[in-house]
């Protein structure tokens, strides 16, 4: 995948798929069950004769936690480096799936006040509007108080949509991070921004993101720093 500033090679052959030959049929099977007609992506251009170029014009990208070179780290619940790079450069949100299939009953947005978090909030609102699922916002009070976060939302013109949809806004003290994670219901889709400020955190995703994704088993929808979300 060629992004504006990076090229990420994602191999889907013997090394990452148990049996590539049946993968297509398997995917079809899953779609048929849901009554959706799948459209398979046919790459048009090739970098070398055997390497397809994949478009980066997607609305969402779904990938397992483990698209990775280093398998040992995945065993510990870390995100693979490929997934990080996809999140970092992608203009689309990345859905990191949970190990088992769980239909979502609600949407939870982790809102920490950064630009990415605002994007995540927008995305949460968008999905909530489209699906009609209830939306919960979780905020960890780090240095500021509740009104600071509410002002942030107001400044971005998100106050109206937030109040229109029945949302609950939960606030937690700084040290209650773990209890916040445990409070999120297991069948809720977590929408969060990859916390990227500055150079160090651009390279490693934020430590919180790492912690969240290794603690909860929910589906995670991650908006990266290049991700753009607009409300309908």
């Amino acid at each position: 995948m060629y992004f504006s500033n990076d090229a990420v090679q994602v191999d889907l052959d013997h090394s990452y798929l148990a049996s590539p030959d049946t993968a297509k049929n398997h995917a079809k099977g899953i779609f048929d069950e849901m009554g959706v007609k799948p459209k398979f992506y046919e790459p048009k251009n090739f970098t070398a004769s055997s390497l397809p170029d994949i478009s980066t014009n997607f609305d969402y990208l779904c990938c397992p936690r483990s698209v990775s070179d280093i398998s040992s780290k995945i065993g510990l619940g870390h995100l693979g480096p490929k997934v990080r790079r996809l999140i970092k450069h992608g203009t689309f949100p990345v859905l990191i799936t949970s190990p088992v299939y769980k239909p979502w009953k609600s949407i939870s947005v982790f809102f920490g006040g950064s630009k990415n978090a605002l994007n995540a909030l927008k995305l949460g609102l968008k999905i909530s509007m489209a699906s009609g699922l209830p939306l919960d916002i979780y905020t960890l009070l780090e240095k500021k108080d509740e009104s600071y976060y509410k002002d942030l939302v107001k400044k971005d013109g998100l106050e109206d949509p937030v109040s229109q949809i029945s949302t609950h806004w939960h606030f937690y003290k700084k040290q209650d991070f773990d209890s916040m994670l445990y409070d999120v219901t297991h069948n809720s889709l977590i929408v969060l921004g990859a916390y990227g400020h500055g150079i160090i955190k651009d390279i490693l995703l934020g430590s919180k993101m790492e912690k969240i994704q290794s603690t909860v088993t929910n589906n995670l929808l991650v908006t990266g720093p290049n991700c753009s979300v607009s409300l309908p």
């Binding site: 090679q9 191999d11 090394s15 090739f46 970098t47 070398a48 004769s49 055997s50 390497l51």
Partner: peptide, 11 residues
């Protein structure tokens, strides 16, 4: 390395 074959200049 998982790269395409060839000498690479066209790439």
């Amino acid at each position: 390395a998982r790269e395409g074959a060839g000498h690479g200049v066209p790439e």
